[in-house]
Amino acid sequence: MQIRILIPVLAILALALVPMLAPSLQVLMTLALAKGIAVMGVTLLLRAGQVSFGHALFFGIAAYAAAFAAASNLDDLFLLLFVGAAGAAVSGLLVGLFVVRYRGIFFGMLNLAFSMIFWSVLEKFYHLTGGADGLRLARPEVLGLALDRAPFELLLYYLALALTLGLGWFATRWLGSPVGQLFQTVKTNETRLEYLGISAQATLLKGYILSAVLCGLGGVLVATAQGIVTPAYAYWIRSGEMVFIAVLGGVGSIPGAVAGAIAYEVVRIYAAAFAADVWQLVLGAFLLAIILFAPSGLMGIYGALMDRISPRRAAAREEKTSAQAAVQTKEART
């Protein structure tokens, strides 16, 4: 058995067994997987070389859409996911139409501006949005069944896991598809893309909408797990956190987004529990250490480790120098 296949399989198996083996981690892992899905959205854009410092916008829009839907008679988990995703897709299209004209720092700043406007609206329109305290999202029904807390949470966990795997697979496939390949060319050589007669903006827009939907689905899952949505969902620090997790996992790596989210949540919760006064400091130091000493993130460390264990494959890829490339290749194989 190839170790490179074995380890991801074991990891997925371990995740599937969390409710049985470590029930206390179940809620934490639901949140981590949900954030992982959202971070996939940010990761996707990183593959086109763009950093959004405002993707919490879509996370927030979808979460609020779900909360409004839950308060109406559309009170079903799957409907909430659909409403959230639709909200994220529509807003992704509208915002995307503007921001795909920009690159680099301007792209990041414009996204930031949109998200801060949405955040201010949430804060200000108290009678509609509940202001800074947000809206409650009562436990929805699941396909017409009203579940108790325990079975609902179990179901939500497996739903999050299934969505993580499904969407992760989809995102990886999409990046490998012709559109996805063109999308990544925005990073490497946008001019060439234009010479081919392909609109870089239209290509970027497609990826942007997909990334918005991913963020939105993550937002709905987090909102349902939490039972509340607040403007903090759309605040710039949340956007920063997503970029943080994407880099932590490994820039541009889809499995890295999930691994990063799990690592981040675990560090965050345990730092908050055992160093309540300095949890931000712990996270900040953790981030610095990763960037300075392992800039290719967790997947980079993993890749290097694998190269050591099974050097045959490493030798075959010797010409590929950067860890980033290693990560991408591995994804194509898993």
């Binding site: 939490q226 908050a272 309540a276």
Partner: peptide, 22 residues
């Protein structure tokens, strides 16, 4: 034992559950 409400709603509920359940 104390829980920090300032760490945000998510951290609060997670920590709340941990204290009760574990």
């Amino acid at each position: 034992s104390f829980i920090d409400e300032g760490a945000g709603g998510e951290a609060l509920t997670t920590e709340y559950r941990r204290l009760v359940e574990e």
